[in-house]
Amino acid sequence: MSTKRPDAATRRAQLLDAADAVFAAHGVTAPLELVVAQAGVGRATLYRQFPDRSAIMLALLERSLQQTQEVADQLEDDDEAFFKLLQRVAERIAVSPPFVDYWRTVERGDEIMALARNRLWQVFQAPMQRAVEAGLCSAALSRSDLLLVFGMLGASLRGETPSQRQALARRALHFILEGLRA
């Protein structure tokens, strides 16, 4: 009797889950052996999927953007979608400070980051406009304003423990939402 091996997509997701957990706990410079151990796979499996740490980070960024887009799609008819998406970003920042710090170190003109910021803007644009039209948001933000909001949410990175970061993220989000709500 043979056991069926998981397909490449399953292994990839398994490795990304492991990398996310390892990097959140130990930083993005953690040995990739920890990712392999967390995923319960062999080293060759990791390198078949991701040739280096940078490839893992790019895949994590892509997955985060895709998940944010999926949440936005689910909230398509919700006038509160803009605020719920901001809450999701705040929570993500609070639980993955090393990941956020990694991307903060990338140069401002980096093409990949420019594309990521553009995608994030596109995800937020329609929900923000819907909130303005529904009278829930005082005014539409510019692209640079939205990036500033994300930077403000990044203040939660100053917390030393996960619970402190979550509390700071909630507090920052509260101030931001108070300023944005009509």
Rank of each mutant, 00 (worst) to 15 (best):
W103R: 04
A55W: 01
G40P: 06
Q125C: 02
P98M: 09
A116V: 05
L61T: 09
A39C: 08
G42E: 06
M1K: 14
L32K: 00
R108G: 04
Q66W: 11
C137E: 01
V149N: 02
A182I: 07
A140Q: 13
V89P: 01
Q66K: 13
D7G: 15
G109N: 14
E80A: 09
D101F: 04
V132N: 06
T105C: 01
R48C: 01
L136P: 02
D101M: 11
P51W: 05
F82E: 01
A140Y: 05
L58Q: 14
G135W: 08
T45V: 09
A72K: 02
V71Q: 15
F99V: 01
F124W: 09
A18P: 03
D20K: 09
R12M: 07
F175Q: 11
T10W: 05
R117E: 13
L148W: 08
R130T: 03
Q166H: 10
A21C: 08
R119W: 08
L180I: 04
E111D: 14
E76A: 15
G151K: 03
E160L: 10
R88G: 03
L16N: 00
V123P: 00
Q164F: 06
R119D: 12
S163M: 12
L60R: 01
L46D: 00
S163V: 14
M113T: 04
Q69V: 09
E178H: 11
G159L: 06
R165P: 02
A116D: 09
